[in-house]
């Protein structure tokens, strides 16, 4: 049996764009987080500090 009523097939679009904005915010945070704790502090001072730290963790 056929019913003719209006169905909005794009009802969730607004929510989807909200999710997208959350994603951007969190993604930037994730990438910054992944680039490590040492680098940001040590890079301006001395490039070898980060390297030394890595070696230390390796052994």
């Amino acid at each position: 049996m056929e019913y003719y009523t209006y169905v909005n097939i794009f009802e969730t679009k607004g929510l989807e764009y909200l999710l997208l904005m959350c994603f951007f915010a969190l993604f930037i945070y994730l990438v910054r987080y992944l680039s490590g704790p040492g680098k940001k502090d040590s890079a301006p001072r001395d490039g070898s500090a980060a390297g030394g730290r890595m070696k230390g963790a390796g052994h």
């Binding site: 999710l19 997208l20 994603f23």
Partner: peptide
């Protein structure tokens, strides 16, 4: 992380 958000998008 990207895949999780794909899942979240589908969820919505």
């Amino acid at each position: 992380f990207v895949y999780y958000f794909f899942q979240a998008l589908l969820f919505i």
